[in-house]
Design a protein around this nucleic acid. Structure first.
Lengths: 208, 208
DNA sequence: TGTACATCAGTGAACGCGCGTTCACTGATGTAC
DNA sequence: TGTACATCAGTGAACGCGCGTTCACTGATGTAC
């Protein structure tokens, strides 16, 4: 006997999903602080008042989008920084993963980049908290690496934060190339790779 | 005989300034894509229609704000990366300059951070162009440094971009500490300093 | 210096429109017996 | 299995409000002579 939601619950979830998806699509071209509740319900095809059955406000919806956009990233983050045979190999893998994620979820990436410093406080806070969690996870992953022997926790967290910011930065550069020829994407990847390499070199000589 | 503007021109400039200042103040709490023309004129105390004597739209005003916020930064940027006796000395000077700039022009910094990935295309483009110019200037400054002997232009530009992003990032972290106790600001400065130091170390061993 | 005309920054009324929120409602789904 | 009642996701009308934009205007400033 499988656990199925009641028909009513299932329909409600479906509408909620539709609202989130419609909002995310609309947010490709504007920011959350100018997103209207009626715009979203119109795009979904429900009455404006239906919105209130799911969210208190568009800010509330925004917070839900943050969880969706960043919550699914935790597994990937770990892979990105986990040790590899070769440093260049890890960097290439990381840049490839970022490029793939941006191609797969462009709207999520755009949303995070846009609202990280956007005009809606609860959303900014939700993003800040998630990114802080990422940095801690990266720190934990880095700590496992033999290369981190002798490092202070503080310095590992500093390095982790640098990596996280670098990932976000690279992701937002990839985003701008999505409509551009492949060549552009390769250029962004090449620069991102060299940036990571330089950071990697700094890491290697940190304790000198 | 000094060159004075006519009374009419002077008054017009004064109103324009007031519109820009009022907009910048309103943008502390929201993003440009939700800023209304009437909000701005109300804050200044002129009729809504007066707005059109100065700007086509709020997007147009936003582009003017980009020029103001970033245009004045070019001299500082040069100082920030110019060579020093000691590498740590240069880093401390750079972090101090950034902290000072954020304290002196918080609204400008917030505006740039917010609209860099914001919902208004012409403004995003204006910011992207200015930041690209910054990177080129930093590259030119770096090229003068004896430490850059043997570097490819490409790699210098890569490093310059890394510095510019790092500056912006640090500025936006300082911004969040403006209302916080001094201690917070010292912590941000300390982390920013170590990040810069790590990048600096990577730079030093780039050609190894 | 004085006069007659041109310019143009800012005004104020008016417009149609979409907004967020309220409210009482409907009717399918869920539950108790 | 059938019946009677409760729940609640989504509806649709209504509200007051502020929006961007248009237009003809006013009156101080500028200019030509």
């Amino acid at each position: 006997m499988s656990h199925t939601l009641g028909v009513r619950q299932a329909q409600k979830q479906k509408t909620r999903r539709a609202l989130l998806d419609a909002a995310l699509a609309l947010l490709e071209e504007q920011s959350l602080s100018s997103l209207g509740l009626r715009e979203v319900t119109r795009a979904v095809g429900v009455a404006p008042t239906a919105f209130y059955r799911h969210f208190r406000s568009t800010a509330d919806l925004g917070v839900a989008l943050v969880e969706e956009a960043l919550g699914s990233l935790h597994p990937m983050i770990r892979t990105t920084v986990s040790p590899a045979e070769d440093s260049d190999e890890r960097i290439d893998r990381a840049v490839g993963l970022i490029a793939g994620h941006v191609a797969a979820h462009p709207a999520h990436v755009r949303f995070i980049a846009r609202e990280r410093h956007g005009g809606v406080q609860p959303v900014r806070e939700a993003i800040r908290d998630q990114l802080a969690r990422f940095a801690e996870e990266v720190q934990a992953e880095l700590a496992k690496d033999p290369q981190s022997a002798g490092w202070h926790d503080d310095d590992l967290l500093m390095l982790a934060g640098l990596y996280v910011d670098q990932m976000l930065n690279t992701a937002s550069l990839f985003l701008e190339t999505l409509q551009a020829p492949e060549e552009e994407r390769r250029r962004v990847a090449a620069v991102a790779t060299r940036r990571m390499r330089l950071i990697s070199i700094g890491r290697g000589h940190w304790l000198d």
